[in-house]
């Protein structure tokens, strides 16, 4: 398909920092190639703004190939835009038509405060991960080879699928409750399914859920929005597994 150019109107959230009030601002951008990615389109807009001696728009991005979890953006009312199973950097302008008005907003969550414009602080996810998303390995020099432990293929596959979570926060952004259960469910599951993770399973789920609640995320009401919008297709099964782990740990833990 030959590339063509489209003219679009953008309504983008501008906010100086966490302490100031933001607002949507309207920009016109002409001659956007339909072959360009959404982030390249924003680069083009920023060049235009710089030429006009205006402040460019701040947005997160890194690998631009859908694996780092850095890009975000709530585009036309959906996390990572209208496509499913993709991140914003994998979204192309061919998904839009000439004359379209595109709304671009940051992730909206109390636990993800806005740093600037479209950039949000997702360190709440890091703190949840630090609360239990790891296995303690003795590095004294006689560390066992992980492959020496037999693991059923199905379990390994499920753990791998859960571990595919890139921590972008689309689940929180698209959840009407601002819940982080899909993220935490994936992080709990990737260890709960493997023998190495079983040792610390009880404390892990209790600590991670506690941290999740402390960060101010909402509660899961099983709308399933997160699963649909997750660029990595993380399944709701992981939330159920976390609920099982949590019930089990809650009943048996002495803490």
């Amino acid at each position: 398909m030959a590339a063509k150019s489209i003219n679009i109107t953008l309504k983008i959230w501008r906010q100086k920092n966490a302490n100031t009030k933001g607002a949507l601002e309207t920009y016109s951008l002409n001659e956007v190639s339909t072959d360009s990615s959404f982030l390249e389109m924003l680069d083009q807009l920023n060049e235009q703004l710089i030429n006009e001696r205006k402040e460019p728009i701040a947005f997160d991005h890194d690998c631009r190939e859908g694996i780092c979890g850095m890009c975000s953006l709530y585009i036309n009312g959906r996390a990572h835009g209208p496509e499913t199973g993709t991140t914003t950097c994998q979204l192309h302008m061919r998904m839009f038509s000439d004359g379209d008005t595109i709304y671009v907003e940051p992730w909206r969550s109390r636990a993800f405060p806005i740093v600037k414009d479209l950039v949000v602080d997702r360190s709440a996810f890091d703190r949840i991960q630090q609360a239990g998303g790891f296995v303690s390995v003795n590095t004294s020099g006689n560390t066992m080879d992980a492959n020496s432990l037999p693991i059923p293929k199905d379990d390994a596959d499920k753990a791998f699928e859960a571990a595919a979570c890139i921590g972008c926060g689309a689940c929180v952004a698209s959840c009407k409750n601002g819940s982080a259960m899909l993220f935490v469910g994936a992080k709990v599951s990737q260890y709960a399914l493997l023998p190495q993770g079983k040792v610390e399973a009880r404390d892990r789920v209790l600590n991670m859920v506690r941290q999740m609640d402390e960060e101010g995320f909402g509660n899961c009401t099983n709308t399933g929005a997160c699963e649909v919008e997750c660029p990595k297709g993380i399944s709701l099964e992981n939330i159920a597994r976390m609920n099982r782990e949590f019930l089990k740990a809650g009943l048996s833990s002495e803490k």
């Binding site: 109390r110 698209s174 995320f217």
Partner: peptide
């Protein structure tokens, strides 16, 4: 958990 709502939201898609 979401003090500022989205200006444009399309939850019927998910």
């Amino acid at each position: 958990a979401r003090p500022i709502p989205y200006a444009r939201n399309n939850p019927s898609k998910n």
